[in-house]
Design a protein around this nucleic acid. Structure first.
Length: 630
RNA sequence: GGGCCCGUAGCUCAGCCUGGAUAGAGCAUCGGCCUUCUAAGCCGGGGGUCCCGGGUUCGAAUCCCGGCGGGCCCGCCA
């Protein structure tokens, strides 16, 4: 559990109320925050107890409340219906909240939940033949937010990005470059990943679909790439390197960072599979089909699985001896959990914007980086991979590995609104509510395109508000607003819910959006900047309702972070941040700070500074850039 | 046919894990607030069979079962 002294001011109120109840004879009382704070700061429901005792709830509540002697932070107790409600001494409570936040500052809300634990997070994992679209951006934002969240909670996090540098989708573009006359140089001003994905991949895919001869050529090229045959292998390598470099520029723009790039070709070359396969055979988890449609294949026995068994056993080794995708994924997953003896060698690929190293697997590399014991391995992959991921997890169980640590973090895809799809050349059939993105068909909105649109919109607004700002300042602020808007929009919805992207709708910069958080932060900064005295936690006079509402939110931040961490739920934190900012804006409208009388002013500055700290901490976890003015 | 997910205000969603006191936001709409710290803001009005039907419970949007509607997945592809 969370340790002592980490800003658990709020929980102290609940604990004190619980102690008072125990002293009044209630065993193990469950004290909670009331839904509505007009009932006080802590509340105990007696219904269950009343039933056990066969007593009238309202009467029992009055009885217990009558036996309670208040003290400490608790200043009042009251029975209302079947509830016992506790009020706090607001002057002490408010002072405690502000002093805690001011002293813990950027660590406020953190906890030792993850100290000594190691987590792998794999995200992004986009085929290196195209630029990132908005669906990929959802993956990046979720993965990177989990990284930031778990890091804040004390976990050691290693971020992986799996690069499928072989396979048919690579063969498509290599075919374009080698046989169909596409130049390796994009037109002036076009990024290589965009050229590769928007032009070469889409056009070649269409041609291959029409021409069986080309399909055959592509198959040969795919084989050539895998076996290292010139010139296909070299050309492919070059394409992968350049596209990957461009893709990571987009990821960095969004605010993500990586530790290790795992190349599919290196996973194959290291042959993790043979080691895992042997172990599966020893354990009787696989068998060779002697007859039927899958004769000659090695199958994973799924008969022991309650759901997967209904769909038949899974092919791991094809009759021609080649492994399937699921087989390779099982081997890779086993590596993540430390279940294989072999390990990769790496070389330095480059550095993240924060200066940390990014390693890439390389059979000729001289770096070793054993992953060691991991407590959790999180794979951010869209929901269409649910079944294969379940199979991988089950295979880990059959291998005797701690499969419960292997988490498929599934999320729904981002689809296009019909009107956006039409703009991209889609012909509507009529009646559909949305259109799925497709790289092959060129039906997608690039992450960078959307960010550029958002930046343009934000720049327009910013110029209007600040005619005196330089072009550079406007651009820099607009870019941060764009990133904030995108990250918030992709992380706030429940991962189980499909996002229908509408470029008209997502351009909104007001209401429940990322820029709302940024704006609230900037407002607080302006007050603090103009203040001529220092913030204080000494309360002078009464604490008003608007202040109480804000202070409550500030006090509950550690709980919000803990809940988000426990449930791997970034959206919990996004919702918290919105409510917090909302309470601040309400406070801002009705509580004067700089114009408040001396003494009162200093405490209110303390509240504003606390807000700035807490919202800043929340925004950093969400990867939403903070702005001191906008 | 089987499996997974979703269904809450006109639209987009939060709340569901861990049942509790009048079901909350944003957008849209109508009305109000800039001579006081940034109006990308704030306040107020209207708007709800929480998909339907059972069950559990003192109490169900929340838990269980069964329907209905929508999305996805079920290849010797990756």
């Amino acid at each position: 559990m969370v340790g002592e002294g980490w800003g658990l001011v709020y929980r102290r109120v609940l604990e004190e109320a619980a102690r008072l109840l125990r002293e009044a004879g209630v065993e193990a009382p469950r004290v909670e925050a009331p839904r509505n704070f007009r009932y006080g700061e802590a509340s105990f429901s007696v219904f269950e107890l009343a039933r056990r005792l066969g007593r009238n709830p309202a009467e029992l509540a009055r009885d217990i409340a009558g036996r309670i002697r208040v003290g400490g932070l608790i200043s009042g107790v009251e029975a209302v219906g079947g509830y016992i409600n506790f009020r706090v001494d607001w002057r002490r409570y408010a002072s405690l909240i502000v002093s805690t936040i001011l002293s813990e500052s950027e660590r406020y809300g953190s906890a030792d939940l993850g100290v000594g634990k190691h987590v792998l997070i794999e995200h992004t994992s986009v085929n290196p033949n195209k630029p990132l679209h908005v669906g990929h951006a959802r993956n990046v934002c979720l993965g990177d937010t989990l990284n930031r969240l778990l890091t804040f909670l004390g976990y050691r996090v290693t971020v992986l990005n799996y690069i499928d540098d072989s396979g048919a989708q690579m063969a498509d573009v290599v075919l374009g470059f080698t046989e169909l006359g596409y130049s390796m140089e994009p037109p002036e001003g076009v990024r290589f990943d965009e050229y590769c994905g928007d032009t070469v991949y889409v056009k070649v895919s269409a041609m291959v679909d029409e021409d069986p001869g080309l399909a055959e050529k592509r198959r040969r090229i795919a084989k050539a790439i895998e076996s290292g045959e010139a010139p296909y292998y070299q050309i492919n390598k070059k394409v992968v390197d350049r596209v990957l470099g461009d893709q990571l520029r987009t990821c960095w723009r969004i605010g993500a960072r990586y530790d290790i790039l795992n190349m599919e070709s290196d996973i194959l070359r290291l042959d993790l599979w043979s080691e895992v396969f042997e172990r599966l055979r020893e354990r009787g988890a696989v068998y060779l089909a002697e007859e039927g449609a899958k004769k000659g294949c090695w199958l994973l026995d799924l008969s022991g699985h309650p759901r997967l068994s209904k769909e038949g056993d899974e092919v791991l080794v094809k009759s021609d001896g080649a492994t399937t995708y699921v087989a390779r994924d099982i081997a890779y997953a086993a590596w993540k959990l430390g279940g294989v003896r072999r390990d990769f060698t790496y070389r330095l690929w480059g550095r993240n914007p924060d200066g940390t190293e990014i390693l890439v697997t390389d059979r000729d590399g001289d770096l070793r980086r054993p992953i060691g014991e991991v407590d959790l391995s999180i794979n951010v992959i869209d929901v269409r991979q649910t079944r294969p991921q379940e199979i991988v997890r089950y295979a880990l169980k059959l291998l005797g590995l701690p499969h419960e640590r292997y988490i498929h973090y599934g999320y729904e895809v981002v689809a296009l609104s019909v009107s956006d799809a039409v703009k991209l050349g889609y012909r509507p059939r009529g009646g559909e509510q949305m259109v799925h993105m497709s790289g092959r068909r060129g039906l997608y909105v690039k992450a960078d395109t959307l960010l550029d649109m958002l930046r343009e919109k934000a720049a327009e607004e910013t110029r209007e508000r600040h005619p005196d700002w330089s072009q550079e300042k406007v651009e820099s602020v607009a870019e941060k607003i764009a990133v904030g808007a995108l990250r918030y929009a992709l992380v706030k919805p429940d991962p189980d819910k499909l996002i229908v992207l509408d470029t008209g709708e997502i351009m909104r910069l007001e209401g429940n959006t990322g820029p709302y958080l940024q704006y609230s932060y900037a407002r607080a900064c302006r007050i603090l900047e103009k203040a001529e005295t220092s913030p204080s936690w000494e309360v002078d006079g009464d604490v008003g309702e608007a202040e109480k509402n804000l202070l409550r939110m500030l006090a509950s931040f550690p709980d919000a972070v803990e809940e988000a961490g426990r449930n791997l739920s970034p959206k919990t934190l996004a919702n918290y941040a919105y409510k917090l900012a909302s309470e601040f804006n309400n406070f801002y409208e009705r509580v004067p700070v700089l114009h408040a009388p001396e003494g009162v002013r200093e405490f209110r500055l303390g509240v504003v500074e606390s807000f700035r700290i807490v919202l800043g901490n929340a925004m950093r976890i969400l990867g939403i850039p903070v702005l001191e003015e906008m």
